[in-house]
Design a protein around this nucleic acid. Structure first.
Ligand code: DGT
Ligand code: MG
Ligand code: MG
Ligand code: ZN
Length: 574
DNA sequence: GCCGTTTTCGGCCCGACTGTTTTCAGTCG
């Protein structure tokens, strides 16, 4: 799929136009198109060839022509033209705090800065302060921005900072005068990675609340501080934004601060057309303020149902809300069991029984124990004899823990030659067989896709785990053809996993939404290697909600009896 | 560049904080 590649080009085209000082709305149109294409629940090439691209709002004649050019020739001439005019590496500086298109243009035109190192040097040589409309503060800020950018330009996986964020929220709630407080931003939308922490609080004396916040011991540096908001750097290097409003505005401000930006822009545009104005303080009809203590009032005033935060990406959710057609998303308490759990038999840290007891504490009815298979030696993969002994132990524990049920499973390696790591006579004895890739990540698309399709064509393979293999901030997805994988999953009744492990989240939101279009059914598994990790389930559910999945799309929302039947279906139909 | 049962031209979300601007532009949320 060329979606990502094309999206990246349009995003850069947007940057180029901003840098060149073109009409900012034109630049924004490219960025908008980039985001639409990135989040497209289909293959852009297919849409282009069937003429359906023009039906998408925000994609017009010029963009379609460029998409066509890229698909046919692998190049976009207008883009190449701009690229030859702008030094490589220059636009990267737009990601540096305090540097926007105007600043960058001045730096380039006057000091001929073209990259990170030259800009650092210019700051150190105190060349910046003398430029027109610049000064010593600006110079100092740019240097700080450069260092911050160098130190930490990546985004945090949501699971990695979940506890820190909830702790910070408690700190805010404990500030005297705070009435209500909530986490907003990408965290509330359950995005897989989080750029910064956004917290909203309500209270009367906003200035004092903000001052108290800046004195918290977890705060390293204040970036900005005013009467309604402040930005700080935490000791962890993360940025946190606090917004404080009167309690009557809490709902409107939560709506604003939850975003996404594109969702807000779309919503505000609709409000405007209807004769309203929305901002973070409320919704206005002329001069009259309609107070919004509750977020749903904002939506209700526009004749819309409340939209779950996970859907607020302007990916079509507002149109659906207008038709009162929002899906009923899977809820965080819908999960009845975990389908991807390791034990000390392979590389897990706790016994089967300990994992089962932790699952019982979470209110689950079942888990599937899925230790690694024999060829995965680094993870203590199970030889066949050990696997058989494990099955016997599971039988024994099941007698003790009934009616809770431990299913016999395995995470069977799809070997480099495309075969599975256990023979069928063994697989058929297992209740739930996971197949997954742990080697040969560099295979080309044809080979990698064939390996995975082969696995799905095995009668006994219940699910493909972490289907694209990506690791957040560490490894790109391997070259699997998502569409072919989805088609085969659907055809063979093989489930695809939404792996909830904090740095996998695989399938991700976009791919899961694509998979649903092809009729795929899912399980959410945590890939837990100890009992605390069972709690990562929420991140997987978050991605499922972001993919608009409902309870019926996800097999491990079924109760024990139904689940027992569901995992037999593929074998019966084969 | 995109869009339109109020428009095919003239709009495109709205506001806070900072710095050097003596009245507001730039960046960011
Ligand atoms: N109306 C409006 N709201 C915005 C704009 N920019 C940001 N917001 C709102 C919506 C965002 O979700 C929220 C927090 O801004 P952030 O920059 O922190 O973005 P967000 O948390 O969505 O993503 P992140 O993970 O931090 O990159 O503020 C804007 O240009 N207009
Ligand atoms: Mg944020
Ligand atoms: Mg923020
Ligand atoms: Zn695993």
């Amino acid at each position: 799929m060329k979606n990502k590649e094309i999206a990246r080009i349009f995003d850069e085209l947007g940057d180029m136009l901003e840098f060149l000082g073109e009409n900012p709305f034109r630049a924004r149109a490219y960025k908008r198109a980039s985001q639409i294409i990135y989040g497209l629940p289909e293959d852009i090439e297919k849409l282009y060839k069937s003429g359906k691209l023009s039906e998408i709002k925000g994609i017009g004649e010029s963009i379609i022509q460029k998409v066509g050019e890229f698909i046919d020739k692998g190049k976009i001439s207008a883009y190449e033209e701009y690229r030859s005019k702008i030094p490589e590496g220059l636009l990267e500086l737009l990601s540096v705090p305090y540097i926007g298109p105007v600043t960058l243009r001045t730096l380039y035109k006057t000091l001929h800065i073209t990259n990170f190192d030259e800009l650092i040097k210019a700051c150190e040589d105190k060349l910046i302060r003398n430029l027109p409309n610049f000064g010593p503060k600006k110079e100092e800020n740019i240097l700080k921005g450069l260092l911050r950018y160098k130190e930490q330009s990546f985004r945090f996986p949501i699971g990695l900072i979940y506890d820190d964020i909830t702790k910070l929220l408690e700190d805010v709630k404990n500030i005297p005068g705070v009435i209500r407080a909530e986490i907003a931003g990408s965290f509330r939308r359950m995005k897989e990675t989080i750029g910064d922490i956004d917290i909203l609080a309500s209270g009367r004396n906003t200035t004092e609340i903000i001052r108290d916040f800046t004195k918290l011991p977890t705060i390293k540096e204040i970036i900005s501080e005013g009467e309604t908001k402040c930005s700080v750097l935490l000791l962890t290097g993360m940025q946190a934004d606090l917004r404080v409003v009167d309690d009557n505005s809490f709902g409107a401000c939560l709506q604003y601060f939850t975003g996404s930006k594109n969702h807000n822009v779309k919503l505000r545009g609709i409000a405007k057309d209807m004769g309203f104005k929305i901002n973070e303080y409320g919704i206005f009809k002329g001069d009259e303020l309609i107070p919004c203590p509750d977020e749903s009032i904002v939506y209700k005033t526009l004749g819309l149902p409340w939209i779950p935060p996970e859907m607020r990406e302007d990916n079509g959710e507002i149109e659906l809300a207008q038709k009162c057609n929002l899906p009923k998303l899977i809820e965080y308490n819908d999960i009845k069991g975990d389908v991807h759990v390791h034990s000390t038999y392979s590389d897990g840290g706790e016994s089967i029984k300990a994992m089962a007891e932790a699952a019982i504490k979470k209110g689950y009815e079942y888990i599937v124990i899925t230790d690694h298979s024999q060829s995965l030696k680094i993870a203590k993969g199970l030889e066949i004899e050990r696997l058989i002994r494990q099955m016997e132990e599971i039988d024994k524990i099941n007698r003790e823990l009934a009616p809770f049920k431990i299913f016999k499973g395995s995470e069977v390696d799809i070997k480099h030659d495309g075969t599975l790591d256990y023979p069928d006579e063994i697989l058929k004895q297992l209740d739930f067989v996971i197949a997954s890739i742990h080697s040969g990540f560099k295979d080309d698309e044809k080979k990698m896709t064939k390996r995975i399709l082969n696995a799905m064509e095995n009668k006994y393979v219940t699910m493909i785990a972490h289907p694209t293999g990506r690791i957040l901030n560490a490894r790109d997805p391997y070259n699997v053809n998502i569409i072919e994988m989805c088609k085969m999953a659907s055809k063979t009744n093989t489930f695809l996993e939404i792996n909830a492990y904090f740095d996998r989240l695989d399938l991700n939101d976009i791919n899961a939404r694509i998979a649903k279009e092809y009729g795929v059914k899912f399980c959410i598994g945590t890939d837990s290697h100890n009992s605390i990790q069972l709690n990562m389930m929420i991140y997987g559910i978050g991605q499922a909600r972001r993919a608009w999945l409902t309870k019926s799309d996800i097999i491990n929302t079924k109760n024990l009896q139904e689940f027992t039947e569901e995992i037999k279906i593929k074998r019966k139909k084969f």
